[in-house]
């Protein structure tokens, strides 16, 4: 009996949380950045990482891995690209993701927000100052790559 009511409680909690996330998770302003980000993702990333973000064999990593979705890592990769060995979940990738200097800071924010909304376990949304702050960090970490 007791475990049954616990289960019901749990289910109820999940329902409310899930529904709440659905309603609150993407409020108005953030919906717009995600929408713009979706369009940009389909133009700039989908060809390699796939529409569903699953990547390609052992050539291109999927974007579901929490490790790759660390804010700075994601943001830096979009602008500066990524090459050389990269290990995720025991799989070593050694491909080349080209840099993309055509995207401005706001567009990078939009792509990041779409990637989080679509592929991350817990969607988060970044604002422009935070993205620009991370971009400054990767510019410092990649002095060779500053153009």
């Amino acid at each position: 009996m007791r475990s049954k009511s616990n289960l019901l409680l749990l289910l109820g909690a999940f329902f409310i949380l899930g529904f709440g996330a659905l309603v609150l998770g993407i409020p108005k302003g953030e919906g717009a950045t995600v929408k713009r980000g979706e369009k940009l993702y389909m133009e700039q990333c989908m060809n390699c990482h796939g529409k569903d973000g699953k990547g390609l064999g052992k050539l291109i990593p999927g974007l579901h891995h929490a490790e790759l979705l660390q804010k700075e890592r994601l943001i830096c990769a979009i602008r500066y690209g990524k090459s050389g060995p990269l290990e995720v979940d025991g799989q070593v990738y050694n491909g080349q993701m080209p840099p993309n200097f055509a995207l401005d800071d706001g567009e990078i924010r939009d792509i990041v927000n779409f990637v989080y909304a679509q592929f991350a376990e817990i969607p988060i949304s970044l604002d422009l100052p935070e993205v620009q702050d991370k971009l400054r960090n990767c510019a410092q970490a990649n002095p060779r790559l500053q153009w």
């Binding site: 989908m46 060809n47 390699c48 796939g50 390609l56 064999g57 050539l59 291109i60 080349q96 080209p98």
Partner: peptide, 15 residues
């Protein structure tokens, strides 16, 4: 193999 544009999509479909 180093194609940055449509080849990964073609390879995914060939796969």
């Amino acid at each position: 193999t180093s194609c940055p544009t449509i080849c990964p999509m073609m390879s995914a479909q060939m796969l």
